[in-house]
Design a protein around this nucleic acid. Structure first.
Length: 466
RNA sequence: UCCGGCGUAGCUCAGUCGGUAGAGCGGGCGGCUGUUAACCGCUUGGUCGCAGGUUCGAGUCCUGCCGCCGGAGCCA
């Protein structure tokens, strides 16, 4: 036994420590059970794992009185010896030689030793991170993020930073938040309109809805890049899978066509799922037990199988034959696939992820490459059960004239995209990319029903606390 | 934004045909226990979302508003 035991995380104690070692633990009290026989059990959690460490305090401790009354949520520093636990429930426990109550927690601590609704927990987002579920979500989200960087870094992609503030109203993909330094109570005016020429950027500015166009700039210089950044949508969407501020990963790859893009997207997703299964087994077991009883099985089966790949046209043919589905929106070639159609494909027809490609040109963005049939573009959506679209991507239109046509057909001003067009004038190259929604990925993996519960501080219409 | 549902104790909910409000958990007190969602007893706790209306009487019925949840659209 040394005088200064090293600070050890609960996760490491439960995984590796041997009886006899002396450690110091720092964490928060999850629950306390006091026995009148002069023994108090304190469950300490430090966020490193789902499981708590059982700390055993004996009456001989000088501050035993305070320890026996410790409230849920209190912060403590415990020094002691790891011993084998004589009782069921845990292999190891910490026999306390010293417990320092760093911050007590009064009896109005909002988190009780029972199940709370996620809805209620959202109203105390500053404390919900201390619950089992949100701790587990935080660790899985971290692993997904870590794995994404590893995936691209080990394959030679550059992590690039696209701007958050942008002038481009990117193809009307959802409403944008405007950014201004003007006094909104009294903006400068000219000819009856707000004079944005006198704003800080001397032009209208927005929060980015995508980093893709800038990523294309970088990809056509260095080959393969990816962004990993917050994205902003001002759309008044109030659903279980939309946020006003969310994180998106957008790889962009030069010399890449749609076939290879599909290979990358599939490999990428499987890699993330496999990594979470491998490195967060305890948390995944929790989600499987408490949130979605098929969580682990779903991930394992996806990792071990091939994604289905069908064209939009084939998808429409399948859906048109599915009379028993009794769709609210009838299916015909040329229409957008509705949620019910996507779910039919992923949950009924194939029961696994489906990549749908080559959508009608009119339904998709101007930058997608026009196919030889002239009617479709080289787009792909990766659809998964329950969530729907988790990835949206395409091969980009690299031919200058075709891109001009696409823009003209949508009434877009080429002047505003002069630099984007320049990429096609000088050394153009086939390239492709996609966007992966981080929150939707975490949602799919964990089985969490609402996207607001897989991001620590959700922003959605009417939701800006914390 | 549209459609539907729900707002009752700190939390999760019940409340029948309209007759002045209940349980479990939590908190407090006591008992018991190498305990572990501990257990047992007692106890505490409410402007029934807000504002109107109908009625002898409204948690309950009606209208408006606010909030939340679910579905749809938009998308990742």
């Amino acid at each position: 036994m040394t005088d200064q035991p090293s600070i050890v995380r609960v996760r490491d104690i439960l995984a590796a420590e041997e009886p006899g070692s002396c450690v110091q633990v720092q964490g928060w009290v999850r629950t306390r059970r006091t026995s009148k026989a002069g023994l108090t059990f304190v469950e300490v959690n430090d966020g490193s794992s789902l499981a708590n460490l059982q700390v055993v305090a004996e009456q001989a401790l000088p501050n035993y009185e305070a320890i026996s009354k410790l409230g849920t949520g209190a912060s403590v520093e415990v020094r002691g010896e790891i011993v084998s636990s004589p009782a069921a429930g845990q292999a190891m426990e910490l026999r306390a030689a010293d417990i320092r109550v760093v911050g007590d927690s009064p009896d109005d601590y909002p988190l009780q030793k029972k199940r709370h609704s996620f809805e209620y927990l959202r109203t105390i987002a500053h404390l919900r991170a201390r619950t089992n579920t949100f701790g587990a979500v935080a660790r899985v989200r971290n692993e997904v993020s870590r794995c994404i960087h590893e995936y691209f870094q080990t394959r030679g992609y550059l992590y690039v930073h696209s701007p958050i503030i942008t002038a481009i109203d990117a193809e009307g993909a959802g409403e944008m938040f405007q950014v201004t330094a003007l006094d909104l109570e009294n903006p400068p005016r000219r000819d009856g309109h707000v004079d944005y020429g006198r704003d800080l950027f001397e032009d209208r500015a927005y929060l980015a809805v995508s980093g893709q166009l800038e990523a294309e700039i970088m990809a056509t210089a260095v080959g393969g890049v990816y962004t990993f950044a917050p994205t902003f949508r001002a759309e008044n969407s109030n659903t279980f899978r939309h946020l006003s501020e969310f994180w998106m990963i957008e790889p962009e790859i030069a010399w890449c066509d749609l076939d290879r893009l599909q290979d990358i997207a599939e490999d990428f997703i499987k890699c993330i799922f496999a990594s979470v299964l491998d490195r967060c087994p305890e948390d995944m077991r929790f989600f499987n037990d408490r949130i979605d009883s098929t969580a682990i099985e779903t991930l394992e089966s996806i990792v071990g199988s091939r994604f289905v790949r069908i064209s939009y046209t084939e998808a429409v043919e399948i859906l048109e034959k599915a009379v028993e589905a009794n769709f609210q929106f009838p299916v015909s070639w040329g229409m957008d696939l509705q949620s019910e159609h996507e779910r039919y494909l992923t949950e009924q027809t194939f029961r696994k992820p489906v990549i749908v490609t080559n959508y009608p040109r009119e339904n998709k963005a101007f930058y997608m490459r026009v196919n030889d049939d002239g009617k479709t573009v080289a787009a792909m959506d990766v659809l998964v059960p329950r969530i729907g679209e988790i990835i949206g991507g395409s091969q980009r239109e690299e031919r200058y004239d075709r891109l001009r046509e696409q823009m003209a057909a949508r009434g877009m001003d080429p002047e505003a995209y002069w630099w984007y067009l320049d990429l096609r004038r000088y050394g153009t190259v086939p390239h492709a990319g996609f966007g992966l929604g981080l929150e939707r990925t975490v949602q799919f993996i964990t089985g969490m029903a609402n996207i607001r519960d897989v991001i620590p501080f959700p922003r959605a219409p009417g939701l800006l606390s914390f």
